[in-house]
Design a protein around this nucleic acid. Sequence first.
DNA 1: TTTCTCACA
DNA 2: TGTGAGAA
Length: 130
Amino acid sequence: MADIDPRIPVYSIGVVKDMTGLTGRQIRYYEKMELVKPARTKGNQRIYSQKDIERLNKVKELLDAGLNIAGIQEQLGKISNKNEKKEELNSSEIIDDVKVSKKKLTSLYPVSNRAELMELLSEKKENKDD
DNA sequence: TTTCTCACA
DNA sequence: TGTGAGAA
């Protein structure tokens, strides 16, 4: 649909919605809040990279952790700026363990962390693309 | 199918 | 913070 670069995989909002378990509106809403910054196709369709997927999952965790948009912007700004601080990870790894697939995720997979999710998503992408 | 804006809670 | 409706 929106594979512009053959090197890197890009996803439309439809697949991102399926991957993240978020609704299309939530994803667009996060973009509006500048939590994510997907590129656009010639037809103005949003195109998300794996970095965007990870960011959206991060947003999910942060929101679930009790953060508001402003707080998430700070967290995302940090990781986007440079590598994460060990002290900051202290709280991140705690929520990282048990969030992800808590209540949303309609028909996803029995994953328990993002890393595992990303692997599954990669397989799914190849499967769909094929 | 995805996009946007307006409006509601 | 997130969604519904309407229009394109």
